[in-house]
Amino acid sequence: MKKLLTHLDWLESEAIHIMREVAGQCSNPVLLFSGGKDSLCLLRIAEKAFRPGRFPFPLMHIDTGHNYPEVINFRDEKVNELGERLIVASLEESMKKGSVVLKTDDEPRNKYQSITLLEAISENKFDCCIGGARRDEEKARAKERIMSFRDEFGQWDPKNQRPELWDIYNAKVHNEENIRAFPISNWTEMDVWQYIERENLSLPNIYFAHKREIVRRNNTIVPITNVTPAKSNEIIENITVRFRTVGDITCTAPVESNADTVEKIILETASTSISERGETRLDDQVSEASMEQRKKEGYF
């Protein structure tokens, strides 16, 4: 008999343990579900943690209004299949209420998600949000706790984080404060794809190679959609691409790729020379500290 767990079994087991700690310690948690690959891993982990029971938390999507329809359809199918409850918190609702004010109509909405998220936390009185963030994504994330404390304004203070030792997680909060729990903190992009392969998880089809109209702008491939139209001087090309991350349309760029299966994506991930966020997240290229700044403002 094998005495040590394989790396995927170990990561899965750690994530299940973290999710059960949330369920055991928090009175009103929620799981943030975007339809993206990381949150799909979270759902499989939740199944392994709580079945045959129901999940002890609802799912919540922060909808910027700028999503690929394939992802939204996939999200709804998945929720249906699981028989769990989905809350959709809409950024456009926040705009109507006046809490989100864009500088210009076409300004990327990603950073404003924090406002909608904080509103939803406060309305629903959530004391913990489970998210799919990973420490390998970005350097501010490398110092993030597995259970990360946020004050009553939802702020992350890197100088005032609770020390986290062994596998003991302190999720205690006062009213209005909350915890962000990250069960797959210790996973890398490769681990995620290997887990997807092993568990045979289905994904929105835009993760796989497909034909798409794009333009090339500042070394990035920009997909042509109604919210990201081509500029008059740009040449529209129809090429084969896939998305490495899936989020708000205006800040997620695809990569050129012919990988149309999970297996091929794993091979490509192993040989890529550019990081997930560097290549495809337009919002992280702005400055060296942009993720750190967003997290301080309540971003997950």
């Binding site: 110092k143 100088k159 890398t188 500290a289």
Partner: peptide, 19 residues
Amino acid sequence: DGLQAEREQGITIDVAYRY
């Protein structure tokens, strides 16, 4: 190298996890 706060002070003040 880590956080803005650490870069400003030129020191590491917190544990970082790497893979």
